[in-house]
Amino acid sequence: MFEIVKKEELSDAVTLFEIEAEDIAKKAKAGNFFILKINEQGERIPLTIADFDRDRGTITTVFQKIGKTTHHLGTLNEGGFISDVIGPLGKPAHIEDFGTVVCVGGGVGIAPVYPIAKAFKEAGNTVISIIGARTKNLIFWEDKMRAVSDDLIVTTDDGSHGRKSVVTVPLDELLRTDKSINLVIAIGPAIMMKFVCITSEKYNVKTLVSLNSIMVDGTGMCGSCRIEVGGEIKFACVDGPEFDGHKVDFDLLMARQRMYLDEEKFALQRYLESYKEKKGGK
């Protein structure tokens, strides 16, 4: 059992947990993820390691309430327990001094971009960050991102905060004007990563993405997370999650992410109804 030692609502839909997992914290690196399972009936879902504290023996994750499991997770509180936490998984991000790096985080993807931006900064890079979301209250960690970036651009689709645009607009401007940019990192919804890659490809700037396909074991055993990179089958859990974005077949990734849409909808609805009943009963 793993204790939730801190809970913070970052926005209406986005929640932060700091979880006690001493041994995982010892080994965690930027770019790693972990898998959790709430209880006996629970499914195994991969979540990002957004931060870790080796002294406190904790890992921090940020998740958006989308399906049943993340909604259920959101009802847990400080002092509550998660049955299983497995990690650190995946290959860590490749960090070195590339010169100037652009870090793009979309929606809940801001969380996993943060430790990478931080590591790039510590490695001596000039870090320009772009964080974006649909609307203002989905933006979080603006101050944290600013602290590890030389420059930070915030965008929202509806213009309620920062610049009214999608992340690719300022990215395109940057790439067009600043020829010193050697690398782009993008983490967020698959569709955002796809368009980031289309944008950066125009300028021939290497782009790394972190893929969030459906996983079960997270150790290369099942192949659920398989994707195509440069025409080859790769497993996001062990070969990734970081890949050369210009080689990723994003349409396949998005199609595979939709595999259980019906089941997910059904499970969520069933959960929300039973949750309402429980609350109403009290």
Binding site: Q41, R44, V216, C222, E263, A267, R270
Partner: peptide
């Protein structure tokens, strides 16, 4: 994957168990 979902994760008991 199919067997892990069905056996370990008990997908045959979905939606009582969460894994589809």
């Amino acid at each position: 994957e199919f067997l892990t979902r069905a056996n370990l994760m008990k997908a045959y008991l979905f939606p009582e168990y969460d894994t589809p």
